[in-house]
Amino acid sequence: MVEVFVTLFVIMDPVGTVPIFLSLTAGRSAASARKAAWQAVAVSFLVITIFAFFGQQILTNLHISLPALQCAGGLLLLLVALELLTGNEKEMTAQADANVALVPLGTPLLAGPGAIVATMLFVKDIDSWGSGLAVAVGIVAVHIALWLAMRYSLPILRLIREGGVLLVTRIAGLLLSAIAVQLVADAVRAFIAGQG
């Protein structure tokens, strides 16, 4: 359980999610931001659970390799990062709450290729009820941590005000673009190594 929790915690990065969450929910009411936080965590949990049970079958039936999934997630994150960097995030935040909670928060930011692949590998190694329960508890614990991080990011928003949010938005865009490029680079390396 500890291994699952630590691995997914590092990949899904609840602390690193906070500035991106603040950027995407800027200008919304506290209730709306709280709703987006829970929707994003619910979507992430649903996606991770589906891939835990059916991931390998889904990818096999669609003839999709793990590097291809990773590259697609990276490109999608890069689009979001560019909007944050260029100041076009207002278009995203002007959309319905569910849109931001589903994409990019729920997936591919939280339930991204890294988290999906890690979960699929943990599920592959399950050999008893005990190890299965440990994986399940680890996944639930990470999602609780994600929700807590986003839920209590709202007091931070009140503290840093609008100018601070603008700064956080640009920093979040830069970090997110780096994550996206790393995902694509890892996928390209896997393709070159013949894993795709």
Rank of each mutant, 00 (worst) to 15 (best):
I192L: 08
L183I: 00
E162F: 08
A172W: 04
Y152R: 00
Q195V: 10
R158D: 14
I192W: 11
L176F: 11
I192S: 00
S177P: 06
A178H: 04
L174V: 09
G196C: 07
I171V: 14
A149S: 15
R189G: 15
L166D: 12
M150I: 03
A180I: 11
L175K: 03
A190I: 09
A178M: 14
Y152Q: 00
A149F: 05
G163L: 13
E162T: 14
M150R: 01
G163Y: 06
G194R: 11
S153R: 01
V181M: 10
R158H: 13
S153V: 06
I192M: 04
A185I: 03
L166H: 13
Q182R: 13
T169P: 07
V168Q: 08
L157K: 13
G164V: 11
R161C: 07
L167S: 15
G173S: 05
I171A: 14
Q195N: 11
Q182N: 15
L157W: 02
A193T: 07
I160Q: 00
V188Q: 01
L176S: 06
D186L: 08
G163T: 15
T169W: 06
D186C: 00
G164L: 11
G173E: 03
G164P: 07
Q182M: 12
I171Y: 12
R158G: 13
L148M: 09
I171N: 06
I192R: 05
Y152A: 03
L176G: 04
L175D: 04
A187D: 02
V168M: 12
V181Y: 00
G196E: 01
R161M: 10
R158V: 12
A178D: 00
L148S: 02
I179G: 01
A193E: 14
V181W: 01
T169I: 09
D186W: 01
I160Y: 03
Y152S: 02
V188R: 01
I192D: 05
G164N: 05
L157A: 13
L167N: 12
L167F: 13
A190G: 13
L159Q: 11
A190H: 10
S153C: 08
S153K: 02
R170N: 10
A178L: 15
Q182P: 00
A149H: 06
E162Q: 15
D186Y: 03
L154Y: 00
R170E: 10
A180D: 04
P155I: 05
F191G: 05
Q182E: 15
R189Y: 14
G196I: 06
M150W: 01
L157G: 13
L176C: 08
V168E: 05
G194H: 11
